[in-house]
Design a binder for these strands. Sequence first.
RNA 1: GGACAGGUGGCUGAGUGGUUUAAGGCACUCGACUCGAAAUCGAGCGUACCCUUUAAAGGUACCGUGGGUUCGACUCCCACCCUGUCCGCCA
Length: 424
Amino acid sequence: MLDIRKIRENPDFYREHLARRNSGDEKLIAQVLALDEKRRKLLQESEALKSERNRTSKEIGAIKAKGGDIAEVSARMKAVGEQITRLDQDLAGIETEQTDLLLRIPNANHDSVPVGKTAEDNRIERIIGKPAEFSFKPKPHWEIGAQLGLIDLEAATKISGSGFIVFKGQGARLERALISYLLDLHTGQHGYTEISPPFMVRGECMIGTTQFPKFIDQQYAVTEEPPLYLVPTAEVPVTNLHREEILPADKLPIRYAAYTPCFRREAGAAGVGTRGLTRVHQFDKVELVHIVKPEESYATLETLVGHAERVLKELGLHYRVVSLCTGDIGFGAAKCYDIEVWAPGVGAWLEVSSCSNFEDFQARRMNLRYKNSEGKNIFCHTLNGSGLALPRLFIALLETYQQADGHILLPEPLQPYLGGLKKL
RNA sequence: GGACAGGUGGCUGAGUGGUUUAAGGCACUCGACUCGAAAUCGAGCGUACCCUUUAAAGGUACCGUGGGUUCGACUCCCACCCUGUCCGCCA
């Protein structure tokens, strides 16, 4: 959520930044400012009347103590009270409207974010490794996986519909191995504290991390009373762990790593780019979350990307890091790097991680602050990135390490997690 | 799910309709005393918003949450939430 006072002070700055997102949201600035003006006018009227009532009520107390007559002044204050009630009702309506609008305005982007309209305009920061070479035509993962009995997409469709995966045998074991490997790497080498959160959360959490209100139709609701939602990413429960808190400065920075399944409705139609495991309603992911002081957040973003890249380097996978342009970047992010792994079987770059700095955009929504050295309460900056998303990592492993005889070689770091197994 | 108890500032703890402007204490900050410290003494010390703005001052709201009664609610009424303890159910 943007700071209404900053919008008030510098509306052009936000109009320009939002216009670069080409989502048309810059028009909301004028709307929110109009509401804000109305709101403050009503607030001032209401507060002036309350001030009068407070003063007069004390006088009434004094008059009564002396045995005086309060009928006339009391009646007058009753009228004032009714007027206050009316004003406050109007005010509450406008405040709700304003907050709702503010929750729908996306974040302004950092100056280093490339300006552009589509994914074509994203800036490629670096390409690491080389594409795997084959003496045969590499197969897509759904063929390899079916042949080796690692996955069964038809069974998944039968029990849950399209967009679900059944892992079987060594496939299921590989999935489990990857979760352990990723958590061990990040907690052991990168200093993260492991969190195992609930997979269902309240609506407030979804507001905090920007899924609500705008993207509510992409979420699964589980119960109606109380409303609970399946997490679309561990970002939601983990970042909200400290919602409504004022953290002591020495608790920062906070680094959490969490495995959860992720549930997404992904309204998009099936077709190219959605076959196999690339785009599913439920997938596993290890997520990295940082809560930091504002002055540290951009250095932290680079560190975070490095932690995610480390996985691909260790596993010997070919990947690139892309800086998302203003037209492609997510709603809440000020800056975002995507990490894309090369999948030789399908011949495409697949997004396996999205590392974002939200600055104080999420922190404002969840009222997450820390007390600085001067004793002031300052909104924290929050960041998160996948470390990594499992199905696409699974795809890259199958397609990159496939052999002419149909088997898959396992990269060395994974072998201990599969009981020393070297190939599938 | 049932019964009982409770929810007030960073902590503790008073407060049953009007000098509550939330007492007192602890902690913290500054000052005095001291070579220094402790003790003692003095002062300060919540959050958010509004107005003004170089600043200061001022206003409003906040005692679990939301309603209600009243000129006026920490205080009275209603509903709900949470915590603790016990009971029931349960992998």
